[in-house]
Amino acid sequence: MTKQILSPLPGTFYRRPSPDQQMFKNVGDAVAVGDVIGLIEVMKSFNEVQADQAGTITAFVADDEEPVMAGQPLAELG
């Protein structure tokens, strides 16, 4: 079964710390437990999304700046 990183909260998913900065992670990047892969904005407060398992990112299932629900997959790990 594919490993997934799920959104901990409902809100807007961001893949960069701010619009003029690089993506936290790209497809093909290795992630360790605790690595930040994105932010979820909930009611104007920003919360880090940390990887809860290690692996290599094979796909982002949610796009940058996309609305997401709590529990929705954000990225897949291989």
Partner: peptide, 13 residues
């Protein structure tokens, strides 16, 4: 607010 309304996460609180 009204009963049954879902407060969205995208705006202020």
């Amino acid at each position: 607010l009204y009963p049954g309304y879902t407060v969205p996460p995208f705006y202020d609180s």
